[in-house]
Design a protein around this nucleic acid. Sequence first.
DNA 1: ATGAAAGCGCTAACAG
DNA 2: CTGTTAGCGCTTTCAT
Lengths: 367, 367
Amino acid sequence: MVKISDVARHADVSPSTVSYVLSGKRSISEQTRRRVLDSIATLGYHPHAGAWALTSRRSNVIALVIPLRSGSYVPVLMQIATAIVTTARGYGHDVLLLTQDEGATGLQRVAGASLVDAIIVMDVETQDVRLPALRRLRLPVVLIGFPADPAGLTCIDLDFEAAGKASAEHLAAAGCRDVALIGAPPEVYRRGTGFAQRTQAGFERAAQAQGLRPATWPCDPAPGAVRAMVARLLRERPGLDGIVVHNESALGPLLDAFRAAGRRIGEDLSVLAMCPDDLAEQATPPLSSIAIPADEVGRQAVGLLMAKLDGQPVPGATLLPPQLTVRPAPGPRSRSAAAEHVPDPGEQLIRGERLGQVAVGPGREPA
Amino acid sequence: MVKISDVARHADVSPSTVSYVLSGKRSISEQTRRRVLDSIATLGYHPHAGAWALTSRRSNVIALVIPLRSGSYVPVLMQIATAIVTTARGYGHDVLLLTQDEGATGLQRVAGASLVDAIIVMDVETQDVRLPALRRLRLPVVLIGFPADPAGLTCIDLDFEAAGKASAEHLAAAGCRDVALIGAPPEVYRRGTGFAQRTQAGFERAAQAQGLRPATWPCDPAPGAVRAMVARLLRERPGLDGIVVHNESALGPLLDAFRAAGRRIGEDLSVLAMCPDDLAEQATPPLSSIAIPADEVGRQAVGLLMAKLDGQPVPGATLLPPQLTVRPAPGPRSRSAAAEHVPDPGEQLIRGERLGQVAVGPGREPA
DNA sequence: ATGAAAGCGCTAACAG
DNA sequence: CTGTTAGCGCTTTCAT
């Protein structure tokens, strides 16, 4: 293993000079700078992470806690995680992966050992058992998702309530009267994962304000269960003319089931999906959708964390505005109908563009 | 931050005694042992990871490199990653997450900095650019997937060739004559991700040996593309009576497309899926399948790594045997047909049980 | 069975 | 502008 003293000897300077060349914390003659940098390159020197952490009291590692059995769609989780790793690397940090089942103890462990400088927790639940521990930790923490009481914590997520509201208004503008939100599996609602309930609240409130008749139906994604649910739904609400699907895994089976029940998607039944854009684009027919801005969530979570590490103040809550993309069905009838529709200013509809964001903290620039 | 000298003072012993209590590297009187352990608990002491790594020359962290745009189905990747983290924790190690785009440089970096003790690389490609760097590293490395030339490397994966073979033999036993392997998107074959080609080789060889007429069709999972592909496939092979689907995302759309083309799944057309069990179970109708043993891959990858860290010899190649689960369609015709089928001994069919594994190294037990 | 002390690789005062 | 030196928290000889 090549160490700083090796570099120093090779460049014929003292170890501290090498250190200062690397940190830039004092001025070095261009001459020696070059010599040192050359030696570093030829020897392939990397500062020992442990030694560095010991002296500088910073590990340059952040922890990322990922959920195990989550209500969230796995590809979105993965996309957020990837964005977090990529962004963190841009700030010179690595990412340590922890699973939810390590619980509060695991957080204490990595924090107590100074293994990590800060923590991001994905998929916090309304009454998360880790909340007290998270509040007690003296490390910067950012939560993706909102607990029931976010006081004293820094949280970020899509504004699901606004997304629910935008969904209802979209269906209303499309002329629907009798609408349903088809959501996550029942256990997700039971477990109290906040995003499901917040979507529901936003959707039902806005639907009622628009004079619509809303309902929320949890949905198990197994095709059999989907068919059964659709049958019951149509029995109870034969006049159903619009749905919002907030359940990626169930999307395909749902469309099939409604079609099997004689509903023509985009004609008898307006469908708005809350899902990644590629899923909505590839659906048959392509569906209007509200995307989960996974990359943005990851990027901003890291940005908030870095700001906190720098001691900068950050907002307690960051809600990313929903982004609704209208995808008119290709058929002649619906296409013209969509083209004729003039968006109401209060409607929060956008086509491809992004709405400005809410409450973003200062945030250091990535390296 | 509470350190070892704090514990020592609190327990009225020397720091070295505390260290020895923790490491168990010399005998301690039961008396002081208790006192020290008590002090540790009441003070909430955790050894400083950096300091520990500095002295012991071990970070107790392993790196996990995950693919970004991979041919693999994301939930399976996630399941492997989760199994790796859980297993590594059992051995007292944490997991540092790296993305594929860090490339060889990233590996050099974490290895050179002694940030990690060992590395697992997921989804290696046939001609992976990182292979030379991986060979040069003096850290233990385990690859999930097989490059074209695995010499000098430790690799583990499902035995895709055996899986292809078992698939062909399953279709033959079901009475098929004209069969196709419907695989990953074309770019995966082009990029040379080994598992796709190995499945193809095993499938086509075995099919021919069984007197079947095989073909392999890459498949883009977008429903439109799937329908187009199925149309072409049926035009070219109107007598098609059996398929193997090795493309999780395309599975639903494929079944729909074949049904739309008038084929009755499990009657006119035998379908075998290579996918997680839950997907095959929830399909309509439930499909016989070969599962990717994601948990087992993760567990054994870590086992191999830990054995190498201990200096134990490990096999260069570990191929996990495919596990075929037969799921008779619920209809009376197919159910009885399946029940009548007596498995041929050479057929590699199993129902629920697991085949013994191949070439597994010694492997230390988890803590 | 326990302590004292050296040293792991690095940074940051202190000294020029 | 550069070198010397004292720790950072821990493990591990060497003593006893």
